[in-house]
């Protein structure tokens, strides 16, 4: 590659079409996620149901993940990146998952005990 000094193979130029269409997609997705967040609130009667909340979490995080992937792939040029750098980035996400996974598993396990203990304290302080 070093023969070609004008292009310098290490520069991957993104075309304006790609940049603009990615931008457009990001804008649309942002508006969509704000719109959906408002939408989900309309049936107030369903508010107590956990499933509704979970749907909301899944939807907005999915949209966020799609947006994030677009940014990483195109704005950050990962689509043209060396395999090593991609590997490293994905690898780091694995460690984030590990961290969150263990911490959540553990707190999820002992949380009920804390809650019941707190309830006891509230009751005790309320009775006298």
């Amino acid at each position: 590659m070093s023969d070609n000094h004008d292009e310098h193979g290490f520069a991957h130029v993104m075309s304006p079409q790609i940049l603009l269409s990615v931008f457009g997609a990001l804008i649309v997705l942002t508006i969509l996620t704000v719109f959906l967040a408002g939408k989900d609130l309309v049936p107030r009667e369903l508010d107590g149901h956990v499933s509704q909340k979970q749907v909301e979490i899944v939807v907005s995080l999915t949209i966020a993940t799609i947006k994030g992937s677009l940014v990483v792939l195109f704005f950050m040029h990962m689509i043209n990146e060396k395999p090593l750098n991609i590997l490293l980035f994905v690898f780091s996400l694995f460690f984030v998952a590990l961290f969150l996974g263990f911490a959540l598993t553990d707190t999820g396990q002992y949380d009920s005990r804390i809650q019941s203990y707190e309830l006891d304290i509230i009751e005790q302080s309320a009775t006298p």
Binding site: T33, V34, A64
Partner: peptide
């Protein structure tokens, strides 16, 4: 390029912060 990558990751983090803080559970 390097500052650009940094800037995009700052954007990326906001892309996740926004729904987590502003949208979910609103």
């Amino acid at each position: 390029d390097y500052v650009g990558l940094y800037w995009h990751i700052v954007d990326l983090i906001w892309i996740f912060l926004f729904p987590l803080l502003y949208l979910i559970g609103s």
